[in-house]
């Protein structure tokens, strides 16, 4: 469903992503791990169409990201990292409505969809509160709901578990399981090795703009102890740092 081929991205002289290639099948959950500055967020931004790759191609659900950008965007939902990006002077519900309408949904379906998401992410109680009055965890829940409000086939999450408490985090990863059942593809980045190990089918390890390893999580979960798996991932992520 998502085919990334030799993607590179330059910011001036900075080579942020260096010839990255991998594939994500329908219903597959992929975890991106790497240190800060490894290129995870830039890669997710390229996949969402917010940034143009300097080189390489991306095919999303058969559409070419470079030539059919609008079609690609309609099939993608993305949660950006750092800022949850909610409009402070809109309520949680109005934030979702706005993005749903911009995605071309009709008003009746929008209301139904928001109600479903409000149940799923447990924000029904505060859906009519202004975004600026919500706690960080609440905002994160609403932001996740906002990026999937148009029911996209592919979901990209940049550090979705940042700021979520244990309960909210559990809700999110249960939602990922549901997406898997619905044959939707998910790519998310995280600094939580436990979440990545536990909830993914595939792990893409990035370092300094390169993909250093793409591994099958299920196989490693079975063949390695939790400690061994952790050490292995840690070595992949920080190899240069460790050797230095």
């Amino acid at each position: 469903m998502v085919k990334v081929e030799n993607i590179s991205k330059f910011f001036g002289k900075v080579h942020a992503v260096k010839g990255v290639s991998f594939e994500v099948s329908d219903g597959e959950i992929v975890g991106l791990i790497g240190e800060n500055g490894a290129g995870k967020s830039t890669l997710l931004r390229i996949l969402s169409g917010a940034l143009c790759p300097s080189d390489g191609t991306v095919h999303v659900d058969g559409f070419d990201l470079l030539t059919q950008r609008q079609d690609v965007r309609k099939n993608i939902g993305i949660l950006f990292g750092n800022e949850v990006g909610l409009y402070e002077r809109l309520t949680a519900r109005e934030n979702l409505e706005y993005f749903a309408l911009l995605s071309g949904m009709n008003k009746r379906n929008v209301q139904k969809r928001i109600s479903v998401l409000a149940e799923c992410f447990e924000f029904k109680k505060f859906q009519n509160k202004m975004a600026h009055t919500l706690s960080k965890g609440m905002r994160q829940k609403v932001a996740i709901a906002r990026c999937i409000v148009h029911d996209p086939k592919i979901m990209l999450f940049d550090e979705p578990d940042a700021g979520l408490d244990f309960g909210a985090s559990k809700i999110f990863f249960e939602f990922l399981e549901l997406c898997k059942e619905q044959k939707k593809s998910v790519i998310f980045s995280s600094h939580s090795m436990e979440n990545v190990k536990m909830y993914t089918d595939k792990i893409v390890v990035m370092r300094a703009g390169n993909v250093v390893k793409v591994l099958n999580s299920a196989e490693y979960r079975e063949s390695h102890s939790n400690r061994e798996f952790n050490q292995f991932l840690f070595q992949l992520i920080c190899e240069e740092t460790v050797s230095a």
Binding site: A50, Q70, K74, F80, E83, G85, Y87, F99, L102, S103
Partner: peptide, 14 residues
């Protein structure tokens, strides 16, 4: 500044 522009331009809207 508030991080709302990126989600907006990532929608299918021109």
């Amino acid at each position: 500044e508030h991080g709302t522009l990126e989600p907006l331009i990532s929608t299918g809207v021109s």
